[in-house]
Design a protein around this nucleic acid. Structure first.
Length: 727
DNA sequence: GCATCGGATTTTTTT
DNA sequence: AATCCGATGC
């Protein structure tokens, strides 16, 4: 795309809209980013707005960076002397963290606060539940925390948390403690970043005035996925008729479960009745076939404004459907497709993306790519920063930065094992609670051999604690003077972390390699310091780690695909229960979101779209037959090629793939003894699985794949087959 | 205090 | 299937 793009009339209208509330409803591929970047350049260049008074909120840090680059390109292309450097560009969370650190003196925590990620939040919830005597078996800390998080996203504090059921009452109590403990640990969770900023702005008029003045021009990307707290934040930051420019697409809202509320779009219209609404419908990304399919899918959702997506890129190729036997087979189909597409040089490897509903689905894909000797780029999955060894090292760094971070302290105080066992830790915690002193202080007292502490611990435990305290103190003293990576080396050495990991197993080697990778990352933060590094670690997203430098297919979830585009898209797992996901089946709102998710996936496609499914799939532990995703049946047949989107039945398609098919309804009656998916035993071939079975001149021909890999066509009347299990 | 084993429980998506 | 938790035995 040229750095200075030609804008269509609607885009032009949006870019040059008056500096008042503006809502841009942007269909997929309609040049949303183009509009945002041009708008920023326009503000700077034509409205002579100082870059520093512009705040632009994006969904990921990567999007922020890209936007900055593109704004700079635009400014440079026009010979403008300004740069975008001073524009405040980042996610809601990153911007809030920044404000909170700066204003910490007006808040009940100090500017060194750490940010608790998901697993820290769960740990804390679990600990509190235990302290309160809540049965964590019956009341899963995960679920409790989800309720707390939801409340916080809705700006509901513990005080106002409804307790209309036993579960809610339990949650309310945990919630109360949870908030206290966060503050006590000088820690904030993700939700706090938004929440504290909102309350700061609401309760401190001077601070509010300051930031209103600082950022009179605000732009928000992916507005459809803002939650209540984020909306409140925008309201608190703006005057009654602000220059608030929001861009979004209700059809692409896929974060309801995280508190995102599409109604914010409606709310915006109500709160700013004079807001100009601009609709971008022309698509510059996809072929008309892709758009027709996308519309066929999304039009089934109710309560939405129908958009007519159109393109002048032409009809393009049909969408290709393929049904595999199981997820391994499906993955092989992916690899075959990748090979076929790239062999003739029509597409580069990097042009291709494989998308799926759940991270677990990446596994068979990775195996298949590995076997085929193909590289791939994996977004997310087992998040790097979520790995055990990485969390350990981060925890060490965190306690060095913020001595009150108890969750991190408890994580590493005995990792690697150093003789500080559960009993000792419990005693420590008791003392801390009794004397109302942070654990760090207790440790120091013990190390100082204060008489009060002497008889509480065995001399062995005491020595272990004193030693740990000694190391810890050392790190704290060094943390200011040593470069980050050197500090990390020191910690690793002090605790003999390498020995701890490298137990001779391959896994251990891998984990140590991860640690070294973290060290390399830390090296890049040498001059900004520990605090910045820790914040970075807490706030990077999966998408942020996606680099363009490798010519390889991208593997990612549909959620992570938001905002991206690829010449070729392969969406796998189009089975009922996977997409739409099982957990959404009983909730119409959730189902609508599954549909939007599919819509997002389809509309990432520029040229070629492949929709794959597996007839049989392993879900969790066991595997069983699946049914074709109901979404597939919404696709107009004339857009499709390959297998037919029928309810089930690998067997009907496997051996007679056609390029075009006759309309459904011509299949055989179901009076056969064997059905695809059954397990059977044959006297000489052993156990096998029925692939297909069809009527043949009064008899039944059964196709079976046996355990040894052989596939046989047998006549039911002749072969001695025992049915072991129905499908 | 620690290692190991068994069992339960889980996984949807993520800033 | 994988992880995480808790109990058990050393």
């Amino acid at each position: 795309m040229p750095s200075y793009d030609v804008l269509n009339p609607q885009q032009q209208q949006a870019v040059t809209a008056p500096l008042r509330p503006t809502l841009v409803i942007a269909g997929p591929g309609s040049g949303k980013t183009r509009v945002l970047t041009h708008r920023i350049a326009y503000l700077i260049q034509h409205e002579h707005i100082p870059p520093a008074s512009i705040l632009a909120v994006t969904f990921t840090n990567k999007a922020a960076m890209e936007m900055r680059n593109r704004v700079d390109d635009l400014l440079a292309a026009d010979g403008a002397p300004e740069k975008s450097g001073a524009v405040r560009l980042g996610t809601f969370h990153a911007n809030c963290a920044r404000i909170l650190r700066r204003e910490a003196n007006a808040l009940p925590f100090n500017h060194d606060f750490v940010i608790y990620d998901d697993s820290d939040q769960i740990s804390l919830t679990r600990q509190i539940s235990k302290d309160l005597g809540v049965d964590t078996k019956k009341f899963n800390p995960r679920k409790i925390h989800a309720l707390i998080s939801r409340a916080k996203n809705e700006l509901v504090t513990a005080e106002y948390f409804p307790s209309d059921s036993y579960l809610m009452e339990i949650t309310r109590r945990v919630f109360e403690q949870y908030e206290k403990r966060l503050l006590y640990n000088n820690a904030l969770d993700f939700d706090d970043l938004l929440l504290w900023t909102v309350s700061l702005l609401r309760d401190a008029p001077l601070v509010q005035a300051k930031y209103r003045e600082m950022y009179p021009h605000i732009l928000v990307d992916e507005f459809q996925d803002t939650n209540t707290a984020q909306y409140a934040l925008l309201s608190a930051l703006t005057q009654p008729q602000p220059d608030l420019f929001v861009v979004g697409d209700p059809d692409q809202s896929i974060y309801r479960w995280r508190g995102a509320d599409i109604r914010n779009v409606q709310r915006f219209k109500e709160d700013y009745p004079d807001a100009q609404t601009i609709l971008l419908e022309q698509n510059y990304r996809s072929t008309q076939t892709i758009l027709d399919a996308a519309m066929a899918v999304i039009d089934r959702n109710t309560n939405r404004e129908v958009k007519k997506l159109f393109t002048d890129l032409g009809q393009g190729e049909p969408i290709y459907l393929q049904e595999a036997y199981d997820e391994t087979d499906e993955a092989r189909n992916v690899v075959d497709t990748v090979r076929r597409l790239t062999r003739k040089g029509d597409f580069q490897l990097g042009d291709i993306a494989v998308m799926y509903r759940t991270n677990a689905q990446s596994r068979p894909l990775e195996d298949a790519f590995f076997q085929a000797g193909l590289n791939y780029r994996l977004v997310g999955a087992q998040r790097f920063y979520g790995r055990r060894e990485i969390k350990d090292i981060i925890a060490y760094l965190r306690i060095t930065h913020n001595t009150r971070d108890e969750i991190s302290l408890l994580r590493v105080i005995n990792t690697p094992a150093r003789g500080i066992g559960a009993k000792t830790i419990a005693t420590l915690q008791e003392m801390s609670a009794q004397q109302d002193l942070p654990l760090a202080d207790i440790l120091q007292h013990i190390a100082d051999e204060e008489p009060l502490m002497l008889n509480t611990f065995s001399s062995r435990a005491q020595r272990a604690l004193a030693h740990f305290n000694y190391l810890w103190k050392d790190w704290r003293e060094l943390s200011d003077s040593l470069p980050l990576a050197v500090l990390m080396d020191r910690i690793l050495e002090d605790v003999r972390y390498q020995d701890f990991l490298e137990d001779g197993s391959e896994e251990g080697e891998e984990r140590w390699a991860n640690v070294l990778e973290l060290r390399a990352a830390a090296d890049e933060f040498a001059d900004v310091g520990l605090g910045t590094f820790l914040e970075h670690v807490a706030l990077v997203s999966d998408q942020d780690t996606l680099t363009e430098d490798q010519d390889a297919p991208t593997l990612l979830t549909l959620h992570a695909a938001k905002g991206l585009e690829f010449p070729v898209v392969i969406i796998i797992g189009l089975d009922d229960g996977v997409l739409p996901h099982m957990r959404s089946m009983d909730d119409p709102e959730a189902m609508a979101e599954e549909r939007r998710l599919f819509y997002v996936g389809i509309t990432r496609t520029m040229k070629r779209l492949y929709l794959f499914r597996a007839f049989r799939r392993r879900l969790g532990g066991s595997s069983g037959p699946t049914e074709t995703s109901r979404f597939l049946r919404d696709l107009p047949l004339d857009l499709l090629e390959g297998d037919r989107p029928r309810r089930t039945s690998w067997h009907e398609n496997a051996y007679k793939r056609t390029t075009r098919w006759e309309p459904p309804g011509s299949s055989q009656p179901a009076s056969l003894r064997f059905r695809a998916g059954m397990r059977v035993r044959h006297a000489s071939f052993g156990e096998g699985i029925v692939l297909q079975s069809e009527a043949r001149q009064g008899d039944e021909e059964v196709t079976i794949t046996f355990e040894d890999g052989r596939t046989k066509h047998l006549l039911a009347s002749l072969a001695k087959l025992t049915i072991l299990s129905e499908a």
